[in-house]
């Protein structure tokens, strides 16, 4: 923020000078815009750094201290970029089996909470038994978060996998990590999941899901879903405002922690490389 302000100040002064300087000014401004874009990308990569939008819980000092603590924890554990739909492996120290590491592989079906309260849920099917584990991102007992397949799905929450056929969330616990080439965009997995026949845990026909196949329900279910739908809510600006942090505040927050996040990113990459030196299993 400070540097931005400095630049803007300089731009104000420059307006008086010749057109050559004006051109330079223009270049600078586009740079600022690019920087802005990069920083705003962080809201997808590090969503938990944004505070709770509920105004009753907001306090700038608390949020700052919380962010500092999060970064302090991140200096000891590399929490990679991941999304709902990515496949993760979490290694944690377990007080119930001393001296051993507890490792769980699964697909991330939900991310929730902000700040130090951030959580994510992993789901997998082991021995024909669906298992879910809820992890806290900043829990100090977690030793390693490894990303095995980085991708997004069509929906924000994949809770419908609980009602899906088992092959859609069965993953090999010894899966090798798939590495994306540097700088490539995050692939979006467009598989359409087939759900088991009813009864379900929720009424999925009312949730506007994109990642499911045709639900094969009688007509009355769709009619009822249409009747209870609230299509006007997406135009409710006030609701949107209450649910989200404004862009200016996001910029302020991410500019403050930008340099430290980048340092951590570089550090994480180095750690990753060190892992690759290990001899892999022979076929």
């Amino acid at each position: 923020m400070l540097c931005l302000r400095k630049i803007s100040k300089t731009t104000k002064g420059l307006r008086v000078y010749s057109s050559v300087v004006k051109q330079a000014n223009h270049v600078k401004r586009t740079n600022i815009n690019n920087l802005r874009k990069d920083v705003l990308e962080y809201r997808h990569v590090y969503p938990e750094f944004l505070p709770d939008p509920n105004i009753e819980f907001r306090n700038t000092l608390r949020e700052k201290l919380e962010r500092n603590d999060m970064l302090a924890r991140r200096s000891h554990i590399n929490i990679p970029e991941f999304y709902v739909g990515s496949i993760l492996a979490v290694e944690s120290s377990d007080p119930h089996s001393l001296g051993k590491m507890h490792r769980f592989v699964g697909i991330c079906i939900q991310r929730q909470g902000c700040g130090l309260r951030a959580q994510f849920t992993l789901r997998n099917i082991i021995d024909h038994q669906g298992i879910e584990i809820l992890y806290e991102m900043y829990d100090p007992a977690i030793q390693k978060v490894e990303i095995l397949r980085l991708e997004k799905r069509l929906d924000d929450e994949l809770l419908y996998l609980r009602d899906a056929l088992p092959e859609y969330c069965t993953f090999d616990p010894n899966m090798e990590p798939e590495i994306l080439p540097e700088g490539s965009p995050i692939p979006i997995n467009e598989t359409k999941v087939k759900l088991k026949p009813r009864p379900w845990l929720e009424r999925w026909e009312r949730k506007n899901l994109l990642g499911v196949q045709d639900l094969e329900l009688p007509e009355k279910f769709y009619k009822k879903a249409e009747a209870v739908a609230k299509p006007w809510e997406k135009y409710d600006l006030m609701k949107e405002y209450r649910k989200t942090i404004p862009e200016e505040e996001q910029l302020e927050i991410f500019n403050e922690i930008d340099s430290r996040l980048q340092k951590l990113h570089v550090q994480g990459k180095k750690m990753k490389k060190r892992v690759f030196v290990k001899p892999t299993k022979l076929a």
């Binding site: 377990d94 959580q119 669906g130 809820l134």
Partner: peptide
């Protein structure tokens, strides 16, 4: 947290 939840 960290305790598995099962489907049955």
């Amino acid at each position: 947290t960290k305790v598995p939840k099962f489907d049955s």
